[in-house]
């Protein structure tokens, strides 16, 4: 079975052998499904076997944090090899190989339990790497929509992005969750910055095929008080850089991502919110963010 999807305006295809249990596990992708992919930027195929070449060289190995998924990126000749586990110390969930241009990926799932996790991560990686040169960022953020604009909360895992979204949902009228972990931010051809929902949303099942103009990027920082401040261009750049997927050490991808970061820093309001996990935090942030003038 081959399905086609459109996320943030980018089409891609996913092929899974008939009878593979994954065929029945793709509900999070359903809102993004399209009948036919005419302009696919990449295709990923689930296969029985992906070679584990002896000559592969590590180009990136994520931190071994028992709370976080473990990812390793290798190169073998022109090919990229990507391995992932649910967390360090657990067996590999999947291995993917991709061509140099990230237009064709082949994924082998290595455990039935981790199959969907493996496919999700493989697709997220292909999407982030392939769209890096298309003014598109796959970001690590929780997103609230209010007043027709999207507000992103950015921070390392466990800092309180989702918590701040929940505070808006509870206390700030007109708030909706667009995505809780991996929204897509794209600078459109007309220069407008749009925030898109995606089929990837961490632990919160929130897969909305909707998009809104960007309101602001806000870094969440735990504090013993509530205060929101504008970031300098340097701070804003560092925030976007550390919150976006992509392999920045690859020269071509690094150049492309930089061009996107620089445009966003110059165009978009960027803040830091020092906050407690309380109602006042949402009042303080919304008072500022909802009064931003175009």
């Amino acid at each position: 079975m081959t399905n086609y999807y459109k996320v943030a305006g980018h089409e891609f295809g996913v092929s899974i052998p008939d009878g593979n249990p994954l065929c029945g596990q793709l509900s999070q992708y359903e809102p993004f499904r399209i009948e036919k992919g005419e302009n696919c930027i990449f295709e990923v195929e689930v296969v029985d076997k992906v070679d584990d070449p002896a000559d592969k060289e590590v180009v990136y190995a994520g931190p071994e944090d028992p709370e976080q998924p473990l990812v390793k990126l290798y190169k073998s000749g022109e090919k990229w090899i990507y391995e992932m586990a649910v967390c360090s110390g657990r067996p590999l969930a999947a291995r993917m190989e991709s061509n140099a241009a990230f237009t064709r990926g082949r994924v082998e799932t290595l455990s039935e339990k981790g199959a969907l996790f493996g496919l999700n991560n493989a697709l997220m990686l292909m999407f982030a790497f392939r769209t890096a040169g298309m003014n598109t960022l796959e970001m690590h953020a929780s997103v609230i929509v209010n007043g027709g604009k999207a507000f992103l909360w950015l921070a390392a895992s466990g800092t309180g992005k989702s918590t701040h979204s929940k505070l808006w949902l509870k206390h700030i009228p007109g708030s909706r969750l667009l995505n809780d972990d991996n929204p897509i931010v794209r600078i459109m051809d007309d220069g407008c910055v749009e925030v898109f929902g995606s089929p990837w949303s961490g632990k919160t099942p929130c897969y909305r095929n909707e998009h809104y103009p960007l309101g602001a990027f806000t870094r969440i920082r735990r504090a013993s008080f509530n205060k929101i401040s504008r970031l300098s261009n340097f701070e804003a750049y560092a925030l976007l850089y550390s919150s976006s997927s992509g392999f920045k050490t690859d020269p071509a991808m690094g150049d492309a991502l930089h061009a996107t970061f620089e445009q966003l820093v110059m165009k978009c309001p960027c803040y830091v919110l020092d906050c407690l996990p309380d109602e006042e935090a949402a009042r303080v942030s919304s008072a500022e963010l909802l009064s931003i003038k175009d």
Partner: peptide, 21 residues
Amino acid sequence: SLGKDYIIMGEGASQVNFNKM
């Protein structure tokens, strides 16, 4: 370049673990 300013980031395989700007 970053607007009118400049930054240096660690890039390239030798600086994968450089996390300063």
